[in-house]
Design a protein around this nucleic acid. Structure first.
Lengths: 133, 133
DNA sequence: ATAATTCCTATTAAATTGATAGGAATTCTT
DNA sequence: AAGAATTCCTATCAATTTAATAGGAATTAT
């Protein structure tokens, strides 16, 4: 799967953050988006590490976006939150494993496919996932 | 994963068939392409059902392509051999499960992504996977 | 002090994918 | 008719990946 539950949860948490604005405790976001709280915690850890959101601990703590919604492309968010965005093992997690990479006639096709997908996902931002009405 | 081992094995079995031409026993194809024989059997069953190859049983039996290599697009082969070619559950196996499909602002993006991938894979054929030299 | 939060590490559960097993049915060759 | 090589069928198991849960430490405002 190119885009799994994890990546989609990440996008939902981020759009929920954008919608509310400012700093919001995860408890609220998780409930609002029906994301299991503990799973959401694991995801926000990734978002913080990637610099997509900033956190404040302790009472009145929470998470906040670090940029405007239109400044996050789906490509960059999913690249961090998915275990891989590659369409095949040949260009993903097991890329290094294949001894035939140098001569494989199919590998260039998979690379071009990945590029196509990434380029597609780069044309959308968080803002595109937020209904205006 | 959009394109898993199964789909890639299918493509390799088919290009091996194209390379040799005529009817070839699976034992030979599987060995040549390093595909586990019994797994290869499961895959050829799908290829036969889809009409991509025809089989002859018994001694001197084997499999043969039903068209010229350039007449198989990657899209159609992978559509049959992969459990889904969709980039997300939202547009794939669990499509029917989601109660928010009607209003989900992200769903159209996933649909467009699927269309982009399918269109990409429709531009390549088996022939493109066969080195000329 | 207390309460509400993020952060950290580990574990478990569920789903998907990859592979294997055994043998029935078919067909050519001798 | 017998035997050998093959496809076909059904069932099961193994490995990997993804999803989710658990418990508590650290932090911070009140």
């Amino acid at each position: 799967m190119i885009i799994s539950t994890r990546g989609r949860y990440a996008l939902r948490i981020m759009t929920a953050l954008a919608r509310r604005g400012g700093s919001v405790p995860l408890r609220v976001l998780a409930e609002e988006e029906s994301v299991p709280y503990k799973y959401a915690e694991a995801i926000t850890a990734t978002l913080v590490k990637a610099g997509f959101v900033e956190s404040r601990r302790g009472k009145t703590g929470g998470y906040a976006l670090t940029r405007a919604p239109e400044e996050y492309t789906l490509a960059e968010v999913l690249k961090e939150t998915e275990s891989t965005l590659a369409a095949t093992d040949c260009t993903g997690r097991k890329e290094a494993d294949c001894p035939h990479a140098a001569t494989c006639p199919t590998l260039p096709v998979w690379r071009a496919l990945d590029e196509t997908v990434f380029s597609f996902l780069s044309r959308y931002t968080l803002l595109d996932l937020m209904p205006k009405v």
